[in-house]
Design a protein around this nucleic acid. Sequence first.
RNA 1: GUGCUUGUAGCUCAAUCGGUUAGAGCGCCGGAUUGUGGUUCCGGAGGCUGCGGGUUCGAUCCCCGUCAGGCACCCCA
Length: 433
Amino acid sequence: MTFQALPGFRDFGPEALAFRSHLLEAWRRVANRYGFQEYDGPPLEPLELYTAKSGEEIVGQLFEFVDKGGRQVALRPEMTPTFARMVSQHANGMRKPIRWFSVPQLFRYERQQRGRLREHFQLNCDLVGEAGPLADAEVIALAIDVCRELGLTSEDFRVRLSDRSVLQAIFASAGIDGPQFDAALGAIDKLERAGRDATITRLAELGMAPPQVDLILRTSAVRSREELAALAASCRVPTAEWGFLTVVDALEAMGLGPFVEIDLSIVRGLAYYTGTVFELFDRKGELRAICGGGRYDTLLSSLGGVDLPAVGFGMGDVVLGELLKDRGLAPTPPLQVECFVAGVTVGDRPNVLAVAHQLRDAGIAVEYALGGGALSKQLKLADARGARAAVLVGPDDWVRGDVQLKDLVQTSQDAVPLDRLVERCRALLTRTG
RNA sequence: GUGCUUGUAGCUCAAUCGGUUAGAGCGCCGGAUUGUGGUUCCGGAGGCUGCGGGUUCGAUCCCCGUCAGGCACCCCA
């Protein structure tokens, strides 16, 4: 092979495309089930759309270039800025809450690894205009149900759920706020990779007192409602106002409790989250996060749009696809044709064409052997194509106005008058077993 | 962008210490089978051993470079 796809980009042959469609169709099905409407935007955007929020350092991670009109442009690395622009333009005239989703292909110029390419498809679901905890529960439930729709169970994955406003309240009780709060979040985010000792050293360097460092470590270790209550009590922080526990309650009321775990070590990398943050992970912990999201109540106004609270998530096709394959949940490939038409002799070929076209006009997926050949060879092809039915066109039947309709699964066969073939073939195709 | 590691047929892999013509299974094509598929049997095609250079009488094997995959950083859609 002289040419190959660029690193991090994928070719989708029929099998891979069927798998991709399987995912994307499940995404759309479940999002629609939650009353979300699909939108899309341009794959190519002004570079400033991304640098405005994230700063110039993001340019190194973008596919960006100057177009022929001298504009600095970038392939979209995420959907949120486009979404923010679109929803800001329409928000004033729309009944709240707004439920929108999209399935964009996103691009990022980074060195690829397993589960992480330079291009992927991502389900983006956002709920705008509702600040209450049921909105958070709604989008988390949507993310869970997407995975359930694809055959995954609570044995396969879980949601790790946290809330930055809860962390803020707890840390504020020890005087950790402002830049120190951001540093604390960063330390928690890296705790697993950096290790406990390195984290303690790092926080001390940032000017944290030992009791503050201890609080940060104790907080990040919280894994249950009881531990959280005990921690809050020890800090004298009231919990009555927290929406966080209402989110958990709501998910349990939906019957999704087995999927949900409180985990205050989840903070998410992005700076704009203000409340709930969550990630979906495979139970075995072998893969990267399947999905991540949270509440961002100030982002829309900070991007110059409307001042509306919002909560949403993104779920990529790469990690999710790997998990499904690991669990044997890849779909069985669809049949290539429903009915195969075979001719017994060379003289039957015009009749094969006539019969095949009659069936195709009736909406049935039909193939026949372009190269002809022995009947046994044609039937081998029919079998390889996964056809359920075969029509055998032969001279003896033809003079009687018949063809042979064969059930390739049950290996039964009947003579059928030509004028009843479509009806009989349809009946055969709906037969089970 | 940095470091480590791997690279043999469409796929999964083998090839003794550096040794003669690089093999197997699956898949693909053809035949056994001129009005009946799946099973079976037989045959065939398919390789510049990722690419380029070096060492050597001789390199899939050793060395250097490069490209690509994997892992760890960076970063996290």
